[in-house]
Design a protein around this nucleic acid. Structure first.
Length: 420
RNA sequence: GUGGGUGUAGUUCAAUGGCAGAGCACCGGAUUGUGGUUCCGGGCGUUGUGGGUUCGACUCCCAUCACCCACCCCA
């Protein structure tokens, strides 16, 4: 063995590419219907962008970022997530001047994590960002996009979980309340949770250790600590979701990993694809744009993991994106026939016909076999008889029927047969 | 970063410490221009890599790398 692919990465081979293309086509189609437009940002940015936006203490920044310095000693990072770069572009190009902005992206992200089912070091995300309004209608519309996209693919076992993480003021109150609640139990918590008590008390809520679970069971709920504007926002968002007929469940334990989230937080959970069962997650981030140097601007967005989505689709036996196959496989018999047919090949291709031809296959039999293996719809046999008549023997590979077709009529004949 | 499992042919898998094998796939052939079914034929592969134990290692031990799964965290 000479070289192997870097850990936690994978190749998308041709047979997989058809699924990817089909999936992306569905996504872009729906995004277009919702009035979203594509934005593509570089896959690396100055490290500081992510450190500031995600939060210094977040795991992403602490241990998962691919950092490197360039020749002038500047620190860059492979993007671990898509929102901060989009917001950077929004501010840098003064996109606020064009009013509300609806943006979508699709591309690779990078996190230095131990690979696992549905988790990679280079992984792909699709996402939407809506920038420019705090109206809870947009929360509901964006969430409805995600729901329609996923359920529209045919997925059945989806669950939309909803929460509000409040604003900086009330979330601070909540953290204090949580610490007050857990403080007497500190001794019996697992070591991880004892750390979490200091850094992110909310993380105590979804610990998997049974004793922690029991203690967390009657902890105060985030929702009881929302201040009035946050409570109103959440109530309005929920009522819009009801009006849009999007089913959801309230889960006050939803925690966002990155620091910039405010108010509405949501997640699409899909059981049965391993421990990493979150297909997509997102929320409102009203403070982020100001934080990275723009004018205070409310926004909301989400990101979904493509690998997990593909696993879920496979899990439900949903296939999409077949290989288009070969339209016509050429079988010239002998050198003379081959030279005769050669000038035609690219002409036919320019007409949009997928041509198969392999000069390495010499015998008639092996050429027919190759036609069969490439799942060609038709084969064109050109021997002495056909040569003499400027024709090919067009063979339907499924029925086995064949008929002599003039070269000048081949394209039109094929087009009617293929479009059927 | 921590723990468990697994690495043998393109692939799925066999092989008490004693000659590395099978199915599928692939290639060739079964009278000269008809594939898919059938029949016949075709496999020396650094047993992931590097050490060690042994007369002898795919098999046991150590290290290392990769993959899978879980913790952690998240998409």
């Amino acid at each position: 063995m000479s070289y192997s692919i870097p850990r936690g990465t994978y190749d998308i081979l041709p047979k997989d590419s058809y699924r990817w293309q089909a999936l992306k086509a569905k996504f872009t189609e729906l995004a277009k219907a919702f009035g979203y437009e594509e934005i593509t940002t570089p896959i690396f940015e100055v490290s500081d962008l992510f450190e500031r936006s995600s939060g210094e203490s977040s795991d992403v920044v602490q241990k998962e970022m691919y950092r490197f310095t360039d020749k002038k000693g500047r620190s860059f990072a492979l993007r671990p997530e898509g929102t901060a770069p989009v917001v950077r572009a929004y501010v840098e190009h003064n996109m606020a001047s064009s009013g509300n902005n609806k943006l979508w992206y699709w591309g690779p992200m990078f996190r230095y994590d131990r690979p696992q089912a549905g988790r990679y070091r280079q992984f792909y995300q699709y996402g939407l960002e809506f920038i420019g309004s705090d109206n809870p209608y947009w929360d509901a519309e964006l969430i409805s996009f995600l729901w329609l996209f996923l359920s529209g693919l045919g997925l059945k076992h989806l669950r939309l979980e909803l929460n509000s993480v409040g604003c900086p003021n009330c979330s601070q109150d909540y953290d204090n309340a949580l610490r007050a609640y857990f403080q007497p139990h500190l001794e019996s918590l697992c070591p991880d949770c004892q750390k979490r008590y200091e850094t992110k008390p909310r993380r105590l809520l979804d610990c998997k250790v049974t004793t922690c679970k029991q203690i967390a069971g009657s902890a105060p709920s985030q929702l009881d600590y929302l201040d009035e504007p946050c409570r109103d926002h959440f109530a309005a968002a929920k009522s819009y979701l009801d009006k849009l007929s999007i089913p959801y469940t309230i889960n006050p334990k939803i925690v966002r990993g990155l620091d910039y989230y405010t108010n509405t937080a949501f997640e699409i959970v899909y059981e049965g694809i391993g421990a990493q069962n979150s297909l997509a997650g997102g929320g409102r981030y009203n403070g982020l744009i100001e934080q990275i140097g723009g004018k205070p601007t409310p926004a909301i967005g989400f990101a979904g993991g493509i690998e997990r989505l593909l696993i879920a689709l496979e899990n439900e036996g949903i296939s999409l994106g077949e290989s288009p196959g070969t339209d016509l496989y050429l079988i010239p018999m002998g050198e003379q026939a081959r030279d005769f047919i050669l000038p035609w090949i690219n002409r036919w291709r320019m007409e949009g016909i997928t041509i198969g031809f392999d000069p390495d296959k010499s015998s008639f039999k092996s050429q027919l076999k190759a036609a069969n293996n490439s799942q060609a719809r038709f084969a064109a046999i050109i021997g002495e008889d056909e040569l003499a008549q400027e024709s090919v023997m067009l063979k339907d590979m499924q029925s086995g029927e064949q008929s002599l077709i003039k070269l000048s009529e081949l394209v039109s004949t094929l087009k009617t047969k293929l479009n059927h």
